[in-house]
């Protein structure tokens, strides 16, 4: 892999869930998460609710400060080595709720122009840029520029949100369930737009979604998270065809079949994902894992290299080389 454009190093984020002293409850939202992004690649992030994928996204764009660990952009640690404001224009985010992510009192032109103005563009320049971008994401600026968020459909609003992120000329965009709330036919349009923009501008994406089909379609590499930890990370192709973590395997098996002659016969996992407030010791997945054995309930699995840039944190891979 070429020098990473963005990387996360041992990110940890715990939230207080109430209580004091010994009774204090801590949500271990993200625990020791590290990964790297090569320029121009798309990293898909999948996992169930409570797995920490949204928290990871917010840590990555510095909307949350990690308890420990760091984010590096172009090799420079954000904060000490790279000022936050400069980082902001390099890494942008698109949220799931297209309506809540637009100020209801702002026209779409103003919403897109806000970013460049924060970074010193004049109103005229910023407005011109906003018009170009609305046009680029498929919204006629003359028709939509003066509208407010509630006058647009979900798909149109999400296009505006993409335009707003693009207005910084970023190199990385973190998409947190950005297409999940859209209807399928509209989702396909927005996915096409994202893929076109990626090619045109050489963008790097972090694509977070619960939809494994969509993640496979758009991603070069995929990271699977479970209860705040990385279970497996690897090229989309090999991760989908030969998962090396039982949780990845279960997620893939839980996907509804699109073939009426090969319906799912058995649910791969029983019960709901456990609560991240008090995660199980050892491997956090061992309570639901069909392959759990001796060390799983006591030892936290290290990462094993299971293929070319393919890593899994599971004791079943002990024969493989460990990753530092």
């Amino acid at each position: 892999m070429s020098a990473p454009i963005l990387s996360a190093h041992n990110l940890v984020k715990h939230f207080n869930a109430g209580g004091f002293g010994a009774a204090r409850k801590v949500v271990r939202a993200v625990d020791d998460v590290s990964f790297e992004l090569a320029p121009g690649e798309t990293l898909g992030v999948v996992g169930e609710s409570g797995c920490g994928k949204s928290t990871t996204a917010r840590l990555l764009v510095q909307l949350l400060t990690p308890d420990s660990g760091s984010v590096r952009f172009d090799g420079k640690v954000v904060g000490p080595e790279l000022p936050l404001k400069a980082f902001r224009s390099k890494v942008q985010m698109v949220f799931q709720d297209s309506f809540a992510s637009l100020n209801p009192r702002m026209t779409m032109i103003d919403a897109v122009a806000f970013g460049p103005m924060v970074h010193g563009a004049s109103r005229g320049e910023a407005t011109r840029k906003a018009q170009d971008l609305l046009d680029r994401v498929g919204l006629d600026p003359a028709r939509f520029g003066g509208r407010y968020a509630h006058e647009l459909s979900g798909g149109q609003r999400q296009r505006v949100n993409i335009a707003r992120a693009l207005a910084f000329d970023p190199q990385v965009i973190v998409l947190d369930e950005a297409v999940s709330a859209l209807d399928k036919s509209v989702e396909a349009q927005v996915l096409n737009l994202l893929m076109d923009l990626r090619r045109e501008r050489g963008l790097t994406y972090v694509f977070i979604s619960h939809d494994l089909n969509v993640v496979r379609h758009i991603s070069d590499r995929v990271m699977v998270m479970y209860l705040g930890e990385v279970a497996e990370i690897g090229p989309a192709e090999s991760l989908y065809s030969a998962p090396r973590h039982p949780y990845t395997e279960a997620l893939l098996a839980a996907m509804p079949s699109l073939d009426p002659d090969r319906r799912t016969l058995e649910a791969p996992l029983a019960g709901d994902p456990p609560n991240p407030i008090d995660p199980p010791p050892g491997c956090r997945f061992h309570t639901r894992c069909a392959h759990a054995f001796g060390p799983c309930s006591t030892q936290v699995p290290v990462s094993y290299k299971v293929g070319k840039s393919h890593v899994a944190a599971c004791h079943l891979n002990t024969s493989k080389e460990q990753v530092a």
């Binding site: 764009v61 902001r88 806000f114």
Partner: peptide
């Protein structure tokens, strides 16, 4: 709300965010 988060991610100062 996420539009405030988006404004924070834009690098705007707190005063700017409150005002706009």
């Amino acid at each position: 709300l996420e539009y405030i988060e988006a404004a924070q991610a834009s690098g705007a100062s707190s005063l700017q965010i409150v005002r706009d």
